[in-house]
């Protein structure tokens, strides 16, 4: 993987998420989409590093939540997804959308639960609905954003497909 391109991509996406998308009523989580993308299209060690890095970026823009919960939850579930992908290939769009939906809900729920249980911050009443909606919107647009993400970091999306046909 080209790490410089990766860093630039994460930075641009973080700025978009905190700037333009922050005011939209219903918005996808672009960092979550990238988390699933790198978990699916990178090798395991790259997926682990990228999961924690994306989590760190999510923490940077995750205010008013404190820093750390996203790094832990993204890192944990990104790594888990990368290992799951070694057993169950997530190549078709519906499966990718499902992976985004489930990962989004789990990462969001874990991040808020960590803050609630350890930092003793109050848990908003409708937080799980908000997490589910964000995951849903992300899952709807996520698979469509995979090709531009792959192009921007120089990952060949078809290489896994060819390998599986042999």
């Amino acid at each position: 993987m080209r790490w410089l391109r990766f860093a630039v991509l994460i930075l641009v996406v973080a700025i978009l998420q905190k700037g333009v998308l922050a005011r939209w009523d219903h918005k996808p989580d672009l960092l979550l989409i990238l988390l699933v993308f790198f978990a699916v299209y990178s090798n395991t060690s790259e997926a682990i590093i990228s999961s924690f890095t994306i989590g760190f970026a999510a923490d940077l823009i995750g205010s008013p939540l404190p820093m750390g919960p996203h790094m832990i939850s993204f890192g944990l579930f990104g790594t888990l997804l990368a290992y799951v992908h070694r057993v169950v290939a997530i190549r078709r769009m519906p499966y990718q959308a499902l992976a985004i939906l489930i990962t989004g809900f789990l990462t969001g729920a874990l991040a808020h639960l960590l803050v609630f249980l350890i930092k003793r911050e109050p848990m908003p009443e409708n937080v799980f609905t908000a997490i589910f909606l964000t995951s849903l919107f992300s899952s709807l647009v996520g698979p469509l954003l995979f090709p531009p993400a792959a192009w921007s970091v120089g990952i060949e999306m078809n290489r896994f497909q060819r390998r599986s046909r042999r």
């Binding site: 940077l60 404190p66 820093m67 750390g68 832990i72 890192g75």
Partner: peptide, 22 residues
């Protein structure tokens, strides 16, 4: 190691880590 880094970040007082966000 990365999980440990995340935990250190999480347990650092918010007054300090909040400055990174700002």
């Amino acid at each position: 190691w990365l999980m440990l880094t995340g935990c250190i970040l999480f347990f650092t007082p918010q007054g300090l880590t909040g400055k990174f966000q700002l």
